[in-house]
Structure formats: structure tokens, C-alpha cells
């Protein structure tokens, strides 16, 4: 298990993302799968950085564990505003260029790229769990 905790700031995003991708690399995930994991983690982090702490600063904690020798389990925690990202409506991805909305895509990508996505509220913390298997999402 490995864990990293940093202030929820955009400047820290890269370090948090890289902490996950280096673990995925060590576990032998393909380069393509690592990009997908990086993407899902970035989307989750950006969401926290932008919305979790409207009145000040707080932390993000990212913990990686390996489950049943195959899956990488990534837990992303914050102590900010309660927010269940899974409750959001999916964006209309068939809308044309004028109608197309700018938001909501990040969460959609997380759901498409990860094998499992779970949210729970635990002692004033938002805990988002992403589970990724080594091969591609299909």
C-alpha cells in the first residue's frame, strides 16, 4: 500500500497523478492503460481542487493498494463539501458543437475508463474508489 497526501491545489495535481502512474507502471500495466488511469485520477482530482473547498484550503489523500494480485485500487479522499460524483447526470455526448456543454465530461470519462467506481461518505470525508484492471477497459 502506498499513500500520498497534499494540499488540494492545481500545482500538486501532477505529483498526485504521477504517484499513481508509477505504481501502475511497477505493477506492469500497459502504457495505454496507465494513460487511462492518469486521466481518471486527474478528472477526480480536478473536481476536488475546484469544488471541495470553497471557503479555504484542504487536503487530498491518494492511496493505492493492489487487490487480488491483479487490480489496482485507488482511493481518493478529501474532507471537503459532501459530493457524490456518481450522482451526476451523464453529459449529452451526441450534441453538436453549438449545443455541446462544456462541463460534466470528466466524470463521464472516469466511469468509462475505470472497471469500478464507488463513492462513500465516511466520517466527514468523501472517499472515491477507482478500480482498474491491467488490460484495457473492455
Amino acid at each position: 500500500m502506498s499513500s500520498i497526501q497534499l494540499t488540494a491545489k492545481i500545482e500538486n495535481m501532477e505529483m498526485l497523478v504521477q504517484s499513481v502512474s508509477s505504481i501502475a507502471g511497477n505493477l506492469g500495466f500497459t502504457a495505454k492503460r496507465i494513460r487511462e488511469i492518469e486521466l481518471a485520477v486527474e478528472e477526480a482530482l480536478v473536481n476536488i481542487i475546484n469544488y471541495a473547498y470553497p471557503d479555504g484550503e484542504g487536503d487530498i489523500k491518494v492511496t493505492c493498494t493492489r487487490e487480488d494480485s491483479r487490480a489496482l485500487v485507488i482511493e481518493i479522499e478529501d474532507t471537503g463539501v459532501a459530493f457524490d460524483l456518481m450522482s451526476l447526470k451523464e453529459p449529452d455526448i451526441s450534441a453538436d458543437i453549438s449545443e455541446r456543454q462544456v462541463g460534466g465530461l470528466g466524470i463521464f470519462l472516469i466511469r468509462k475508463l475505470m472497471n469500478e467506481v464507488k463513492y462513500r461518505r465516511k466520517h466527514n470525508r468523501n472517499v472515491l474508489t477507482l478500480v482498474a484492471y491491467p488490460s484495457d477497459r473492455t
Binding site: R35, V46, I97, V102, L105
Partner: peptide, 20 residues
């Protein structure tokens, strides 16, 4: 380009709308 996230897509969309 090695990697793009929704922030990248969003910026392309903003430019595409402006150009349209």
C-alpha cells in the same frame, strides 16, 4: 500529443465555438 484530459477537450471546444 501524448495525453489529453477533459480540460484539454474543453479548451478545444471553446476554440471551436469561437471559430464557428
Amino acid at each position: 500529443l501524448e495525453y489529453i484530459s477533459s480540460a484539454g477537450l474543453r479548451s478545444i471546444l471553446v476554440i471551436a465555438k469561437k471559430l464557428k
